[in-house]
Design a protein around this nucleic acid. Structure first.
Lengths: 109, 109
DNA sequence: TCATTTACTATACTCTGTTGAGTAAATGAT
DNA sequence: ATCATTTACTCAACAGAGTATAGTAAATGA
C-alpha cells in the first residue's frame, strides 16, 4: 500500500515543478533541487520519481518540440495536477504540525 | 549507501523522544506521533525504527525495572545521542530551506 | 491458574530512493 | 557526410525506509 504522505524526494520534485512553472522539465528540476538542498541529484533518480508521480496522478507531462540549440533535444515538461497540489499542501501542513514548537535550543539540553 | 537525510518517520521518532524526555518509551512515543500527525502508527513500525535508529548510533536505550501496575512490564526507555540530536537539527534546517518562500497561495494559481 | 493488560518482537513484504551504465536526438567541426 | 559533443531522457538492479500481520513475554487481578 502506498503511504499516505509524500516521500521527501517526491516533495522536492513537486516543489521544483511548482517553482519552475513553464520551465519545468528534467534538467532544471534537477538543478533546482541541487541548488536548494546542496546535494547532488542523479538524473535517473529524478526521472524515475517523475514517472512514479505521474503514474500516481499527481503530475502530468507533455513532450515539446526540439529547440535549435546544440543538443537541443525535445523536452518533456511537467506540471502539477490538482491532486499533486493538494498533496504538496498537505505535506507542508503535516511538517508544520510535526515541528511546531520545536526550538533549536531543545537540542542542547 | 544510507542516505544523508533522515527518513520522515525517523524524524517523527526522534522528535517524539526529544519531547517526551524522561518518559520516552515505546507506547508514549507511538501516542505522541499519532496525536501530532493524526495517522495511526503500528507498534511494529515504531519499534523497528527505534532499533534501526539505535543501530545507527542516533539514540540509546536502557531497560528499566517493572512498575507495580497491571501489565506493568519493564519498559525500554530511549534518549537521543549527540549524533541523533545533530541529525534532527540538520533535518529541520533542510526542511526550512526546502520550503522557504513557499506560500500556500502558490498552490491555487 | 488463567484471562487480561501492557510492552515489545519476528518476518515478510512493498514502496521510495540511489547507483551505474546506457540510449537517443540534436548541433558543430572537420 | 561523418563523427565527436551536447542535451535530454531511460534501463535494470539494488539498498533503504516504511508497513502489515501476527506473535511472544512478563506483569496483575479475579
Amino acid at each position: 500500500m502506498p503511504r499516505e504522505s509524500l516521500g521527501e524526494f517526491e516533495q522536492l520534485i513537486l516543489l521544483a515543478i511548482l517553482r519552475l512553472g513553464q520551465e519545468a522539465y528534467g534538467v532544471p528540476i534537477i538543478e533546482e533541487i541541487e541548488n536548494r538542498t546542496g546535494r547532488s541529484v542523479s538524473q535517473a533518480a529524478a526521472y524515475l520519481t517523475l514517472r512514479r508521480l505521474e503514474q500516481k496522478g499527481w503530475i502530468r507531462s507533455k513532450m515539446a518540440m526540439p529547440t535549435p540549440e546544440r543538443g537541443g533535444r525535445a523536452k518533456r515538461f511537467f506540471s502539477l495536477k490538482p491532486a499533486g497540489t493538494r498533496r504538496l499542501h498537505a505535506a507542508r501542513a503535516e511538517l508544520l504540525n510535526m515541528w511546531e514548537g520545536y526550538e533549536p535550543e531543545m537540542d542542547t539540553r
